[in-house]
Design a binder for these strands. Sequence first.
DNA 1: AAACAAGTTCGGCAATAACGAACTATTAAG
DNA 2: CTTAATAGTTCGTTATTGCCGAACTTGTTT
Lengths: 258, 258
Amino acid sequence: MAKSKGVIIQSVARAMDILEYFNKIKEMGISEISECMGLSKSTVFGLVNTLVNYGYLEQDSENKKYKLGIKLFELGCTVEKRLDLRNEARPFCEKISKAYGQTVHLATHYEGEVVYIDKFDMPDFPISYSQVGKRAPMSCTGVGKAMLAYLPWEYVQRFIVSKGFPLKTEKSIKTVEELKECLFEIRRNGYAIDDEEILIGLRCVAAPIFNHKNEPIAAISLSGMVNKMTDDVIKEMAKDIIDCTRAISNSLGCKKDN
Amino acid sequence: MAKSKGVIIQSVARAMDILEYFNKIKEMGISEISECMGLSKSTVFGLVNTLVNYGYLEQDSENKKYKLGIKLFELGCTVEKRLDLRNEARPFCEKISKAYGQTVHLATHYEGEVVYIDKFDMPDFPISYSQVGKRAPMSCTGVGKAMLAYLPWEYVQRFIVSKGFPLKTEKSIKTVEELKECLFEIRRNGYAIDDEEILIGLRCVAAPIFNHKNEPIAAISLSGMVNKMTDDVIKEMAKDIIDCTRAISNSLGCKKDN
DNA sequence: AAACAAGTTCGGCAATAACGAACTATTAAG
DNA sequence: CTTAATAGTTCGTTATTGCCGAACTTGTTT
């Protein structure tokens, strides 16, 4: 399932494949899992039973089906606290979201994917594709491209180019040349634009956040419907976003202005 | 490590023991883990390497140490969304917290322990023992006792009595008789009081939340310093908390008024 | 009441995880 | 600058342990 590097303990890998499955399908029984994963019922039962014992899965007493357990919430909270970036960024994101009345995303990257770690939605125009904790392709999002532009080319090569470009819409980046050109422009401007590349009708402006080692560890974006996001508006937004990301970067110990 | 029920897959159990460890000590190396768990370095390496491959652990590129990975944040967020209780309760908690200017906790229970799922802190008087995602003993907390009072006695027996009573302060419940007496009174009053039973100087009032099956699945508490929490104040607070928990219980499909 | 479906248990075989030792890499000390 | 020490990683062997198929149990449907 996952790209194996070095020693992989089969049963542990299978257990985590099962958890992964539950991240998509929230409730499943033993038979269902064993069918999906091509394992015998008894094997799955052993794994699931172990996961239940540790609180990673819970069994519904009514329909006997299993679901993700509260232990994952517990561990997830621990990780969340480590993301102190989130706390640093929160007031800035809130402010900018209110200022423009648009949705703001805060995201980090992990192995070539965007992971949303915070979101300030507009009640009247909620964006459903992004949810805190969820992933999205880097090449189709403003936040993703903003980070890619400042990541070493080996990273881009390894996690983006070699995997092929996911086509979310017909405007999504399709080739390496396109990507290179786009990243070059982002570095020149200091901000990234997503012009209906993940969802038709949606445009975003994003800028990267740097840590003390000057690595782009996150990004912030403002998203809105195409008709409201004219070139002039975007330019204005970009200024404010860059002010924000610079301030956050500084608070994380970043010295330079990228 | 954990109480084994049925088939337990050793390597999976060990992998989860490792994750558990990281929930306490945030950064560890291979040698450190292998020492703590009494396993050979190579065994630990295999497990850790598998966990890294799946994003459950991450290795710091500088000091080579490992820490909990972002995948846990991802799965934790999925679990969090399932806790729709949290969303239902949030406006009520916020309101009551503001009304009294005191800290409000929302907690559920799992295997005889309280798990905090939301918290509204007072900036000028933050309570540090409770953090979202963390656990606490049921017998020492208002929220815990409020739920225990309405849980079947087998539950109390199995998870509380048989485990012994944790003594957080000298006022913590020490005996079964004390507990029985206390739970009886909670049922009579409809609310629970924690009088410096988890932390000296802290008093709480709590009431349980019921689901559609009339099971006490959560509780809300108001906490404050002893001098502010006089008997009269507590009685007044109790009324408001019960109003809240009744409303939340109803929104979860609970018909009865307990 | 019987047939079915889903969860759970059992026993035997062989794959696999565990271990110790050897090998790097990095850091501390002499 | 050399050596020692510490921590991370790899390898090969062995028997432990996890895997499977089949049987058993429980509950539901026709």
